[in-house]
Amino acid sequence: MRTPLLQLKGVSKRFGSVIALSDITIDVFPGEVTCILGDNGAGKSTLIKVLSGSHTQDEGTFSIDGEEVVLTSPRAALDKGIATVFQDLATIPLLSIWRNFFLGREPEKGFGPFKKIDKALAKEVTRTQLLEMGIDIRDPEQTVGTLSGGERQAVVISRALYFGARVLILDEPTSALGVKQAGRVLKNILVAKSRGIGVIFITHNPSHAYMVGDRFYLLNRGKLVNSFEKENVSREELLRAMAGGAELAALEHELKNAGEAQ
């Protein structure tokens, strides 16, 4: 039995009398895409915050490499190699690509007060790292604002990977994007996966999840209602499970009736 890279066991989180998460158990393996599916209000955001260290769980355990840890801040999570990619919350549009890439972790050369950024190194690393993500930017001096949403996200992901992330949490990365851009994001996910990263892909879109996912967890009203592995589930089954089978059938029936009535 493999040891999961990251594991939640029986995790619960309450806010006052509201139970946001209850008894959540999730395994994340390296080189796999773990999808967490759920509708609005299912508890996805709380789960992300627990995973990324913004919240600490009330019950249950959080383990990395089989070792129990308590994360008290996003910084602590980052130090353990857990990087969270928030949708359009991590790049500065008017700053160049390479400055964004190294923001907060600039490589320097020189001594004492004459320390300056090693621009040549920074630009070269940015270019090659993005090339590995399948993006040829050529001019790292371009501002990030000139990139498309999917490309911007590739910058954030390649930055996280370059700085040693082992678990990558993507929060609704495709929700605000068009079909083409969403495709770019799914490609980003597969690149991260192929590099042995444990990717956590949080979404309410089962089609996107099915295209890249290896294992699926369905969240509803703060509880884990179902989980699948890729080989045991078809796209339709996943869709149905996500929509809550019976409800979907009822909706189909209703729409059909409405169509006939016209």
Binding site: P93, L103, R105, E106, K116
Partner: peptide, 28 residues
């Protein structure tokens, strides 16, 4: 000009003014 264009402080200044939240998320 040197601070702004050649040092990490310069990057931070621009980032902080461009989007303080994103800068914070990046560790500035």
């Amino acid at each position: 000009s040197w601070v702004l264009t050649q040092t990490k402080i310069g990057s931070w200044i621009t980032a902080v003014g461009g989007d303080a939240n994103a800068a914070r998320n990046s560790g500035v």
